[in-house]
Design a protein around this nucleic acid. Sequence first.
DNA 1: GCAAAAGTGTTGTGCCTACACCCATGT
DNA 2: ACATGGGTGTAGGCACAACACTTTTGC
Lengths: 256, 256
Amino acid sequence: MVVVTINAGEATDVDGYDKHAYEPFAVTVDLAVFTLRAGALHVLLVERGQEPYAGRWALPGGFVLPEESAETAARRELAEETGLTGSAGIHLEQLRTYSEPGRDPRMRVVSVAFTALLALPPGAPEPHGGGDAAQARWTPYDSAGPLAFDHDRILADARERVGAKFEYTCLATAFCPPEFTLGELQQVYETVWGTCLDRPNFRRKVLATPGFVEPAPTGAARLTGGRGKPAALYRAGTATALHPPLVRPATEGRPA
Amino acid sequence: MVVVTINAGEATDVDGYDKHAYEPFAVTVDLAVFTLRAGALHVLLVERGQEPYAGRWALPGGFVLPEESAETAARRELAEETGLTGSAGIHLEQLRTYSEPGRDPRMRVVSVAFTALLALPPGAPEPHGGGDAAQARWTPYDSAGPLAFDHDRILADARERVGAKFEYTCLATAFCPPEFTLGELQQVYETVWGTCLDRPNFRRKVLATPGFVEPAPTGAARLTGGRGKPAALYRAGTATALHPPLVRPATEGRPA
DNA sequence: GCAAAAGTGTTGTGCCTACACCCATGT
DNA sequence: ACATGGGTGTAGGCACAACACTTTTGC
């Protein structure tokens, strides 16, 4: 076998041998797509129709095409799986790359994993899967049983990253509809962190961070659940970082 | 061309066609290896001996071999480039994956980038490069002129990540020898951040964080530069996260 | 009126910045 | 003696957690 490991540059030996002579690497993307449904964190899963892991659930994903970047491929898969048309504004972020040999029993697959956060509009279409016999479904994170391949680990990594990023970014608005109340934003935090937050302090913190939220142009307020004082509406601001961070309290009681 | 994009699972169509029929993806690793030399941040670069970018400097890296994970390949390359034997304890961390088509003019190369932090022992061997005509050299970060491929961007991303991680992790000890003084640790922070820190406060902060540093078993102290009171020696603790974080002050004066 | 949810005020604690000050060593 | 760097003490300030309180709606 040709030894390329002492090569100092990047791929400088490629010209020297047949590009097709070796077992190729397949490059795929895997997506951990999160949303909030009925006050619980849900993840988008697809059911596999073929071996290996036929009948098992897995993260959606697919091949990176020859002319695509991994980001482009991920956004394309996301649009296909969720059926959402305007996927341009959806928050999509690279998580990390999983490359252990043997993670796919058939061949060498290197997978770039992404995390996506989206808000389901009230009348959003159910995910329809991507053809074949596969179906797609929103699944509560806690019920996302054993998945195919190493997707359990990918999903856990993605979940952890989302929780951590909530502390120092404005990411939480990605789970909210275009206009939302501060109470809804707080519920997003409480659901993702599994903690209770003090409402007055949360409110002050959010409003004191420039660019986190801005009042909705319509001065309108909305009734939360029928009862209670109507809440002011806000929309996501332009800021992306959160200084100072919103610290997650030590694990305490669950939100009511 | 076979349409694989509507496939819901991961690589489920692979069995249906010849694995060698398409232009394969090459998978490489690129390393941004940082160290501190003479009070300045340095990065390990190699000079390319072949086209494209012959004579230009680039980040070290190489192919992922068929039986390797990207992490394994990165650690192997790191050991080869630095000549360090005990590379097991070196901090190595995945940065992100760069997959834009055309980033290598010859073929489709997907590169998993890593960041490595290490302390150069006093008599450390100079990096010897990896064979061919390439040479390797420690270069001040600020002088790391235009690099080959998209390595300027990778290096900038790595640099930013290192600075950010210093705030909320114990990573700074990776730049220190096995035993170090708190003054040395502070200089590490000041060099990486380009700021001045208050010594008494820095000291308290570090010592108040359990597991950040622990006193060296030998009660020995060391003379810093000939002058001044001998400083107590510490070694890196077992903690990895930093609660609460060590906040980087708004960009002010440079360290003396 | 009562419950429920939004929104405002206030107070105490604690951390952290900034600076003054002592200690030990080399020249 | 003095310069240099390590180490300790302390006062002021700012931020935040905790909780009391008012407001506006539905029943």
